[in-house]
Design a protein around this nucleic acid. Structure first.
Length: 237
DNA sequence: CCAGACGTTGTT
DNA sequence: GTCTGG
DNA sequence: CCAGACGTTGTT
DNA sequence: GTCTGG
């Protein structure tokens, strides 16, 4: 699945990738929030939105549907399965009207080894960005009256190249398909075609420090590859 | 009718 | 808001 | 996703 | 065990 990400790219790289500048406030904010070595649910990430116009903005991870009584549900809705996203009550409205793309340049997966959670970082083979398919929502807090803008990341079955880490992965597409995801009619067949072409299959993975487990850690060292432990049969369960 | 859920993942 | 379950 | 809290009262 | 917070 996809529950922790990195975004190290500078603002210009993201703007160039999506061919659009950030909304006014988001541009300066970007420079404060990134590089992000340990991005978690509730954090802000760059999101390409297709409203009346196309916009590049910063939204918070963890979808809060407009009907929610409080924002807690967002802790659960960090991923949406592509197989069911069109039907689920929490997602179907956003799937119809508010599909979006999230920019990251890596994400983390954990593998249980000898009872320890060992993190790996998955990156695009060409070192560019991932554009992750997502859904966005806008929710108004009934207590404060403040608007909260959130998103969820769509997942799909893992590609062979990373299936040894997990059986799910984020649904990532290349620029040629951005238009289809954002504005297309998206019949089941179209969606199938998009998932078949999902770019993330061209990704590679490497082990990183368990420092990444704690969200409070956020420094360049988290990206550094860590040697695989030479655990012989003696250490295996 | 009203009440309660609305999600994914991994593990048992 | 909308659907399911009771 | 993982880590960390999980509680109330009264006082500083 | 389960929920909240980041």
């Amino acid at each position: 699945m996809c529950g922790r990400v990195t975004l190290v790219a500078d603002r210009e790289k993201v703007e160039n990738y999506f061919e659009i500048p950030f909304e006014g406030w988001a541009g300066e904010r970007y420079d404060q929030l990134f590089p992000l070595y340990n991005g978690a649910p509730t954090h802000y990430l760059p999101v390409l939105l297709q409203e009346e116009e196309r916009k590049l903005d910063l939204l918070q991870w963890g979808l809060v549907p407009f009907w929610a009584k409080d924002r807690k549900i967002g802790y659960k809705l960090i991923n949406a399965s592509v197989e069911t996203v069109a039907e689920k009550p929490s997602f179907r409205n956003a799937f119809k009207k508010r599909r979006c793309l999230i920019a990251v340049d890596g994400y983390y997966e954990w593998v249980l080894k000898n009872g320890k959670k060992v993190p790996f970082r998955i990156v695009p083979e060409d070192g560019s960005l991932f554009a992750l398919c997502g859904l966005s929502e806008s929710w108004t807090d009934p207590k404060s009256g403040k608007e909260l803008r959130t998103f969820t990341i769509v997942t799909m079955p893992a590609a062979d190249s990373i299936s040894h880490l997990h059986h799910r992965m984020p649904f990532a597409i290349l620029p040629g398909d951005f238009e289809n995801w954002l504005q297309g009619e998206l019949s089941e067949k179209d969606l199938q075609k998009l998932t078949d072409e999902a770019a993330v299959r061209f990704s590679k993975a490497y082990r990183v420090s368990t420092e990444v487990n704690a969200v409070r850690n956020n420094h360049e060292g988290l990206l550094k590859p860590v040697e695989e432990e030479s655990s012989g049969p003696l250490f295996d369960q």
